[in-house]
């Protein structure tokens, strides 16, 4: 698998009509590290991820992956640069099986076109089998074996979220973007997920940009944390420092009277 890429977001601003969702935000995710993005609701975390993935237009600023600018590219081209995204509200293809969802994660790595697919013999059949093997590796990695043939919408929500991560991992991304993967997961599922996250970092070396509400989890797993509030960065650094900064405590809990 390809190793992680560094993400540099410089002075990024995004506005929706009159609303300034992001205002001069700079975030850096170093190669092979887990960078957490936290902040109260409406801080602009998901907007930042959408900007990185090319799902919303940016006003000013730049987004670079290993030094190459990716802002302004359509989202499928950004995906081709090696950005894999797991969505907050899953966004899986509900009627398809887990297997088919993950096979879609292999889309960029496969070549078969319309005619090759329609004939489905020889090379295109071998290609499909080879990529099936890669998908099985991801299924094993995230321990989804028993759900392989189930339609996604028949699965518990926590498992669906894990399938979203699996689909992004099947892309073999250099940057894995996770939007609140653990919300909706049970205690056990969260513990498993923490283990998977560490394995992604140590065994695959993928850079992870991770939006998370569970601050305990962030404190335990993240290498660096960026805290957003009202579209601006209010703290940045190793988890212990960033999360205990007074302005962060104030953003979450309010000012002490």
């Amino acid at each position: 698998m390809s190793a992680g890429a560094a993400l540099e977001v410089e002075r990024l601003s995004v506005a929706f009509r009159g609303l300034q969702a992001l205002n001069g935000v700079s975030v850096r995710a170093s190669a092979g590290e887990i960078t957490a993005l936290v902040g109260p609701n409406g801080a602009g975390k998901t907007t930042l991820l959408n900007a990185v993935g090319g799902f919303c237009a940016i006003t000013t600023g730049s987004i670079r992956l290993d030094g190459a600018p990716i802002h302004g590219l359509p989202s499928h081209r950004i995906a081709a640069r090696g950005v894999g995204r797991a969505f907050q509200f899953v966004e899986l293809f509900r009627h398809m099986t887990v297997l088919d969802n993950l096979m879609l994660g292999r889309h960029l790595h496969m070549r078969a076109g319309l005619l090759a697919g329609a004939v489905f013999f020889g090379r295109s059949r071998r290609e499909q089998a080879a990529h099936r093997a890669r998908v099985e590796a991801v299924i094993e990695f995230l321990e989804l074996e028993r759900y392989r043939r189930d339609a996604v919408d028949s699965l518990p929500f926590g498992v669906q979220k894990l399938c979203g991560v699996a689909r992004a991992l099947a892309m073999e991304p250099r940057l894995l973007v996770l939007d609140e993967p653990s919300s909706g997961m049970s205690r056990e599922e969260k513990e498993d997920f923490a283990r998977f996250l560490l394995r992604i970092k140590h065994e695959l070396g993928t850079t992870v940009l991770w939006v998370e509400h569970d601050l305990e989890m962030v404190a335990d797993l993240a290498d660096r944390v960026t805290v957003l509030d009202f579209g601006q960065v209010i703290a940045e650094g190793p988890p212990a420092e960033a999360l205990s900064a007074p302005q962060v405590v104030e953003a979450y809990l309010g000012r002490q009277p």
Partner: peptide, 17 residues
Amino acid sequence: RAWMAIRDREIAAASLG
């Protein structure tokens, strides 16, 4: 599969390249 992905959710399809 790509067609079905577009049918079900265009944004998610684009996110897969």
